[in-house]
Every structure is written in structure tokens, then in C-alpha cells.
Amino acid sequence: MIYFDHVTKIYEQNEGEKIEALNDVTLHIKPKEFVIIVGHSGAGKSTLIKTINREIKPDSGDVYVGGINYKDLKKRDIPYLRRKIGVVFQDYKLLPKKTVFENVSYALEVSGIKAKDIKERVPKILELVGLSKKSNSKPKELSGGERQRAAIARALVHQPRILIADEPTGNLDPKNAWGIIEILLKINQLGTTVLMTTHNQEIVNKLKKRVIVMKKGKISRDQEMGRYEE
């Protein structure tokens, strides 16, 4: 499903200092897997994720998603690729002036889905993430957990084969965090490949899923039923 072949991404900081956000990363994620990526802040987790939805282009190495080598991807194909990959961004990226419903339907509007279909699909997805009651609220009227759910709803509304969630439990209390994890597990059971990053050791250890540990842009450990300790 996802295959990284010696992928490197180097950022240039202000003073010409170079940071290897991804350093020769090779990794393979099979369809329907549930994978957790852990690592310190700045380890390159978000960079890895942004490489998958083509928000950034690696400096070297090959990225394959769904059998497509991103090097063969044309600029005009990128929007269609992004509709097949649901991404929950670390900073949500919800539009502040739109309601929850509008934020979710927006993702369908941009891809030209008919209004009638949107009206059917959005409530279903809001139901799934448990946000039906907040349908008409603006993001700033929501709690952190609710915003996270709204972001997940938007990522799922395209019914993507892959769901990527960057820190979906960050800043959430344990109860809310588990609520989010349960949604991701449910999605995974329905057949979607799920890839999430987290700092939360407790969640990692309880989930007993595949864990990839990143350190300074490198994969330092990759383990089925993995644990995460400092």
C-alpha cells in the first residue's frame, strides 16, 4: 500500500544549516494495517506524513502509494491522489468561518460531488465520529476533541483507502484520546489502512499494533505489537 525506498528530505534552516527531516527511510506498509509512528518532537514524523500526501517532495528516494511511484505523478494528478488519502492534520486545518458541516462538505464540493449526495454523506460521517450535534458549530466553538473529530470526519468523507492522522490525540485528555483511537480502530476494521503518529506512550502500549520509532529522521525501530518507551 505504502512503500518508502531510501527516502531523504533535507530542510534548509535560516542560517544555511541543513536538517535531515527524513534520512534514508525505507519502510513498507501493507493494506489494512494499523501503524503507529512515534518519536521525539522534530524526529520527522510529520515530514513522513506530508511525503505521503505529496505536500512535500523528497530530495531523493522513491515513494510508492497504491502502486504508483510519485516520481511518475504529474502535477495535475495530485488533487485526485489527495482525494484517495484521508489526512488528519496536526493543526486540524479547519476553515474557521465554516461550520463543521460545511468544513466536511467542502472536501466533497471541491471534487465536484453533487449537492444531493453531499447532504446524504456528511451527516453519516458526522454520526460516525460522534459529532452530529455540533454540525452547525464553527471550529472555535468546539473543544479540542471535537475539532479533532471534525478533522477526522473531513478526512474520511471521501472514503479513502488510507487514513493518516498526525497526532490525533495530542492535547486531549485520556477519555477523549481513547474516543479518537476507537474511531480509528473502527475505520481500520472496515478495511482502511491507518497510519497515525503520537507521543502518547500509554496509547501505544495498550494498542499492541505495529510501532515505528523515528529518531532524527531515521527509523530506529519497527516492531509488530510494539511498545514505546523513552
Partner: peptide, 16 residues
């Protein structure tokens, strides 16, 4: 700008 960036990320085509 923010809206445009989000549009791109949720798969809007350039013409849209």
C-alpha cells in the same frame, strides 16, 4: 491563503 492551502490539501483541482 489559508483557505487556498486547505483546498489544495483536500484535493481541489487548480481550476477549482
Amino acid at each position: 491563503k489559508e483557505e487556498i492551502d486547505i483546498m489544495k490539501l483536500v484535493g481541489a483541482t487548480p481550476s477549482f
